[in-house]
């Protein structure tokens, strides 16, 4: 099989450089296989985070030829046949070493979200709802927390508005709770005031890079923005709520 040359970022926060490695490619290999081959044969100290090699653990997120992707789900034959292949760590999170970044900021955002709060169960101790009520939420549950969307979102990646916006992954986590038929908590005030739903300009890069093909923007973020409109911006809805004494969920903030 053909040989390919990789330019891999080597270094840490204090500095580093792209280093070139040429290795043979066998049929069916993915980029993560190639990185392992390079690690085994040429660069034993190359740091990579990975676990499942099946696109399910969300560990191997990196940037391949400038595009945020999972290394284990990027087949070599998907890449251009010519030229060097550039491999970098994710841009948005602090670099630890080589291709490994510190994604703990994301865990801290997750902790800010109020947990699922079900009502008391039915008299037999069970909860009941239909598949139709669960469909929307199930899409968001496919998330593998690879944080590629967080990495690509320009609000975080380039504008560095981490103090204003939790990012797409957590917008859909809020959506999965808010749309849940059995949830009784209210996160709409948080969504607007704490999580920064207004900072997203719905340009859909999160959706473009999601390896689970979750329709983050159209099915998660925009519906949440519309609920924020109901609560805060729609004058008629506000008047109606004032007259009828509010809907199922009352603002808590």
């Amino acid at each position: 099989m053909a040989e390919r040359t990789f330019e891999i970022w080597r270094g840490d926060r204090s500095g580093g450089e792209f280093k070139e490695y040429t290795e043979e490619v066998d049929e069916g290999m993915v980029v993560l296989d190639m990185l392992h081959r390079i690690q085994a044969r040429q660069a034993n100290d190359l740091s990579i985070r990975w676990n499942c090699k099946a696109g399910k653990c969300g560990s191997c997120s990196m940037e391949i030829n400038g595009m945020p992707r999972l290394a284990c789900m990027t087949r070599m034959n998907q890449l251009p046949a010519e030229g060097k292949i550039k491999v970098q760590p994710m841009k948005t999170f602090p670099l630890i070493k080589d291709l490994v970044t510190d994604v703990s900021w994301n865990y801290r955002q997750n902790e800010r979200i109020r947990p699922f709060k079900p009502p008391a169960p039915d008299s037999d101790g069970k909860y009941r709802f239909q598949q139709a009520d669960a469909d929307r939420v199930q899409e968001f549950r496919k998330c593998i927390e690879c944080f590629l969307c967080q990495n690509t979102c320009h609000v975080l990646r380039d504008h560095r508005k981490q103090e204003h916006f939790v990012g797409p992954r957590f917008m859909i986590r809020v959506a999965s709770l808010e749309m849940h038929p059995l949830d009784t908590d209210d996160r709409i005030p948080d969504l607007k005031n704490e999580f920064g739903s207004g900072w997203c300009n719905i340009t859909r890069c999160c959706t473009e890079v999601c390896p689970e093909s979750i329709n983050i923007t159209d099915n998660g973020i925009i519906p949440m923005k519309e609920r924020v409109v109901d609560r805060y911006y729609d004058p008629v809805a506000r008047i109606l709520r004032a007259i009828t004494g509010g809907g199922k969920k009352l603002p808590t903030a």
């Binding site: 320009h154 609000v155 207004g198 900072w199 997203c200 300009n201």
Partner: peptide, 20 residues
């Protein structure tokens, strides 16, 4: 150009305020 492409540098970093 906010953003002009995904993982492509957007316009005027300092000025971005989203839809606020």
């Amino acid at each position: 150009a906010n953003p002009i492409g995904c993982a492509v540098g957007p316009f005027r970093r300092g000025l971005y305020r989203g839809e606020t």
